[in-house]
């Protein structure tokens, strides 16, 4: 539902807010919420698949071209349009999550030291939030707290955990990320991580097993599928290696049901991603040039 109000005449646009032009109305935030179920696709019966992502971490795996980044962009787009939500994005390739760079509170490119710095900050935020929750005599954040949800999205996790930087830096990255994944869930810092094959040489098993939700896109081998989904699901008939290579975006999702189910992830093309990203950047009005100019 598009929420716009009638556009005032151009001359009456409140330029004090830095709006120089209005396309067809005064922008109003979509008012989605991370505390509501997030639509990510359909299941094999054509029914909507939603995730309660604010209190869960999700690990996305699969071969290149399987649809991992499509799911990541859908999740990121929803979060970008959600009320009181901050984005912390890690993308070594720059192009997968790059469209959201302007509205992300932190965007980490191929720079492991920057990644470490951001994770250390998140760790402090988590510490402070738990101290705050303890002061409130509570154990979990909820919608009424009006505290921001900080969504951490990592595309190609292996770049940070096994490729960039020194061994000490990578170990510190694993340590910090494990802490964020382990403790961030209940205080509004969910993590979405994607990698091609989350085997032990890419991320430690202790870190991998902390992800409650799993999404396995097309995998080249049965073993790879089991690494993503966990346990011995392939022997029970749930193997992402059976997915048709031509059917991009199809995946096995292991979430609330406790059993993997086949889904087709929703997909945004580049134009749609930039359409949403530009609109959300416009709403946020991060560029204060016009405001400064007006004030002057």
């Amino acid at each position: 539902m598009k929420r716009t109000t009638t556009a005032p005449p151009v001359g009456e646009v409140p330029t004090a807010f830095g709006i120089s032009t209005a396309p067809d109305g005064v922008p109003v935030a979509p008012m989605l919420s991370m505390f509501d179920p997030m639509f990510i696709g359909i299941d094999e019966f054509g029914q909507a698949v939603t995730l309660d992502l604010v209190f869960h971490n999700i690990l996305v795996g699969g071969e290149p071209g399987g649809g991992k980044s499509g799911l990541l962009n859908t999740i990121t787009a929803y979060a970008a349009m959600a009320d009181n939500t901050r984005l912390v994005l890690f993308d070594g390739k720059l192009v997968e999550l790059g469209p959201w760079m302007d509205i992300a509170d932190e965007f980490v490119g191929p720079d492991l030291e920057h990644a470490l710095s951001v994770l250390r900050r998140l760790q402090v935020v988590i510490n402070n939030r738990y101290a705050w929750l303890r002061a409130q005599r509570r154990r979990k954040l909820d919608r009424q707290d009006r505290m921001s949800v900080i969504l951490v999205v990592l595309d190609e996790l292996a770049l940070y955990s096994a490729t960039y930087g020194t061994k000490d830096q990578r170990e510190e990255f694993d340590r910090l990320l494990r802490d964020v994944v382990a403790r961030g869930r209940a205080c509004g810092v969910p993590v979405v991580a994607a990698t091609q094959r989350p085997s032990v040489d890419i991320i430690p098993t202790s870190l991998r097993d902390l992800f409650g939700y799993r999404a396995a896109f097309r995998c080249t081998t049965i073993n790879s599928s089991d690494i993503v989904l966990g346990r011995d699901w392939a022997s029970q008939g749930y193997s992402a290696s059976d997915i048709d290579p031509e059917n991009r975006g199809m995946a096995y999702l292991l979430a609330e049901t406790g059993v993997p189910r086949r889904i087709k992830a929703a997909y945004l093309n580049d134009a749609e991603i930039y359409q949403i990203a530009d609109y959300m950047a416009w709403i946020r009005r991060t560029n204060t040039t016009a405001l400064s100019g007006t004030a002057a």
Partner: peptide
């Protein structure tokens, strides 16, 4: 949920 087109990109 967003404008179809014509969104100003001054803020990008």
């Amino acid at each position: 949920l967003v404008g179809a087109d014509g969104t100003p990109i001054d803020d990008t």
